[in-house]
């Protein structure tokens, strides 16, 4: 009984922590969902783009003493061309190939970047300096750290911007058209290759920013950090309904909250399993995810 009471008392605080974590998941999940939506590929290298974003942020902060805002901008400026390059070199030649080939290629890129960063930075975790003051704000019983506020603000701004781009700009319309049908989009005069590059760029920008934010939040980054987080965020994207942008946001936040709650009720050691358990559960109950469209079997 007492346990339940403490749990309820701590609930608002857990929610805040969960949503903060979930916001970073959402940023990464968006890259997976957009790329999947447009070329039906699990971009396994996306987790590594996020990892590299975190390292660029670290470099900027440590060597150039920039503030977190500039660090994020720099991470984005490196991750965007990186992702475009990955698509050009490793995925584009494989368009129209077997289903498995681009996946293996993506795994290859992922492994390549992990190894490369391990060679450059060493295999150990690197401390991420505290660049945001550790001020704590209290609202009722709930405590917000300044880092949390920054994460929530930055990710909200990024997600709203993304939503605007996809919904209201010409290139966003082209993205949506391309994800419906290459052929029709092509007939409408859309340059498919440019749209695909643009999609990778958008995803990478969010992942790069996510990397810096996570570095700030947990104060530690390492070359393998993209593996599990990447997989979990892909799960989040599937949870929300792969291909759906609001789905990825909901899925990410949902996963963050579920993880924090899971830890709070004593499943701390199973933390990394929560995402996968949720994924399997959702896929079995509603195979297209929370926001996904139903699939009609084509004969």
């Amino acid at each position: 009984m007492e346990q339940i009471q403490t749990f309820i008392q701590l609930l608002p605080q857990q929610l805040v922590n969960g949503i903060t974590l979930g916001a970073t998941y959402a940023l990464i999940a968006l890259g997976y969902t957009m790329v999947y939506g447009i070329i039906q590929l699990i971009n396994f290298a996306h987790g590594e783009v996020y990892m590299i974003g975190a390292f660029i942020g670290l470099l900027m902060v440590v060597y150039f003493k920039v503030n977190f805002f500039l660090a994020i901008i720099c991470a984005i400026l490196v991750c965007v061309p990186l992702a475009i390059l990955i698509e050009r070199v490793a995925y584009r030649p494989l368009r129209g190939s077997t289903r498995l080939a681009p996946l293996i290629s993506a795994l290859g890129v992922s492994l390549f970047l992990q190894t490369l960063m391990t060679l450059i930075m060493g295999p150990n975790a690197q401390g991420f300096p505290q660049i945001v003051k550790d001020t704590i704000y209290t609202v009722g019983t709930v405590k917000f750290s300044l880092v949390q506020v920054v994460i929530l603000l930055v990710s909200s701004v990024l997600m709203v911007t993304l939503h605007m781009i996809v919904k209201f700009t010409k290139v966003g319309k082209a993205m949506r058209a391309t994800s419906e049908s290459y052929e029709t989009a092509n007939l409408m005069g859309i340059n498919i290759n440019r749209i695909i590059s643009f999609t990778f760029a958008l995803g990478a920008a969010l992942a790069g920013a996510g990397g810096v934010l996570v570095g700030m939040y947990f104060n530690s980054i390492h070359p393998m950090m993209g593996v599990i987080v990447g997989l979990k965020c892909f799960c989040a994207a599937v949870l929300g309904g792969i291909g759906s942008i609001p789905g990825a946001m909901i899925g990410g936040v949902f996963l963050g909250v579920a993880e924090v709650m899971g830890v709070a009720i004593g499943f701390g050691t199973y933390r990394d399993a929560i995402a996968f358990a949720l994924l399997i559960l959702v896929l079995l109950l509603k195979p297209t995810g929370i926001m996904g469209k139903p699939i009609q079997r084509k004969v």
């Binding site: 070199v89 490793a90 030649p93 494989l94 190939s97 080939a101 681009p102 293996i104 290629s105 795994l107 290859g108 890129v109 992922s110 492994l111 390549f112 992990q114 190894t115 490369l116 060679l119």
Partner: peptide
């Protein structure tokens, strides 16, 4: 560099 070669091989092989 083993893993570097291996991973690059995965990509080129698939292409």
């Amino acid at each position: 560099y083993r893993m570097l070669i291996y991973s690059a091989l995965m990509v080129t092989m698939m292409i």
